[in-house]
Design a protein around this nucleic acid. Structure first.
Lengths: 218, 218
DNA sequence: CAGGCCATGTAAATATTCTTTACATGACTT
DNA sequence: AAGTCATGTAAAGAATATTTACATGGCCTG
């Protein structure tokens, strides 16, 4: 099925060519502008240049469109995290640092995806694909946590799952509270990246992983 | 101004009596059911038993109603945190523990307020009262951070503001990811409270505040 | 290379929501 | 007792949501 139009702009015939894709992009654009609640089905249709009924051929309702945006988000998220982690090379510390930065970068660079994933009210259980994509993204954090935990002093190794959840919570907390140029949230004396790096260093030290680079007190 | 009805149910005359209050309560009920995006102005009006035009006498639009819910949330939030912190009595450690629990309890017990505050997309800058209420709530965390920082080893005292932001990020992260019985989010092998307590202990140990109670490894 | 299938679109129709405008009510003031 | 004004309703027009009947045209099949 190669319709008249495969995603590009420009004139089209009766059929759009790639409306499903165009609707997702329209949703992203509108979410970026007005938040995950800030778009309507009709508005996405208008933005894509089709009639208000057309989206119903591709998504049952607005929630399903939003869920697909979130699904795409989790997949890109996993890819970004996995690329940053890179199997823990060249060493756990460097890879872990990259991981945190990649997380924040994703939240800042793709705020529409991020808010669709975590603030859109999309029930994870509604869609097995969504659940799986979310699990795969978390699995990257979990891998990193395994490596970190293994570096803790023997006899005091925390459960990797717990460490992974802690990392997730810290990073998500910073990303969602301070990580987006909202201009609507609190002004900070430091960047989200600096804040996260300091927090991670303190946390890792608490785990018994004393990094030599830790020492410059504030 | 003592209208026919001051907030209770039951029959009423032409005037509602306390529509402003009733609308806020209706919004809370609906947010709790369907998220901060899950209610309409008309629905709140119906829930309060008035015509769809009546809410406009009290709020410019839906966003202003939501902002008022958030304002109420920040005020209750500050009260709950301040009560838990209690000036740091009897000792910083115990008070800090209460503070974290109070935070999670608020997020779980008042999910509608919490999501209106942090996930409703309400711009903090839109309303000076809102900004102030948010600042006052954060000031409680900041106070606690001051006391904690003061207990860190001399020469390695982290800035209290940074510590406060870290505490906020960790707690918000856990609360928003795991802290509500969403039944839509990830299942956990431990409670949010346990997760937070462990995380705080590790973080505090990283700050150099070695609690004697820390030692049971996982 | 017709002919038809059917995915994908439109148009039109109904219900709900949004928002304003003109009007009604009645608590409070004097 | 009368007037004022905050607070409500009714009604109307625009936007949105959602379904149904119909139109288009790419692609498969013979």
């Amino acid at each position: 099925m190669t319709w008249s139009n495969d995603g590009r702009d420009g004139p089209r015939g009766y059929h759009h060519g790639n409306l499903r894709e165009a609707l997702i992009r329209a949703a992203l654009e509108l979410i970026a502008q007005k938040g995950p609640a800030g778009f309507t089905f009709a508005e996405a249709a208008r933005w894509a240049g089709v009639s208000p009924a057309a989206p119903y051929r591709h998504f049952r309702d607005r929630d399903e469109l939003l869920a697909n945006v979130a699904l795409r988000g989790f997949r890109q998220f996993e890819a970004a995290l996995a690329k940053a982690w890179d199997g823990g090379r060249p060493d756990t510390s460097a890879a872990f640092d990259r991981l945190g930065r990649a997380y924040l970068e994703f939240a800042r660079g793709e705020p529409a995806l991020y808010s669709a994933m975590f603030e859109g009210g999309v029930p994870l259980g509604s869609n097995p694909e969504l659940r799986e994509a979310s699990d795969r993204a978390f699995a990257v954090l979990r891998q990193a946590a395994e490596k970190l935990s293994a570096q803790a002093p023997p006899g005091a190794r925390p459960p990797a799952l717990m460490v992974a959840l802690h990392i997730w919570a810290m990073t998500h907390g910073i990303a969602s509270l301070f990580g987006r140029g909202d201009s609507a949230r609190r002004a900070l004396p430091m960047s989200a990246e600096e804040l996260l790096e300091a927090q991670m260093l303190i946390y890792l030290r608490g785990l018994g992983l004393s990094e030599t680079k830790f020492g410059r007190s504030g």
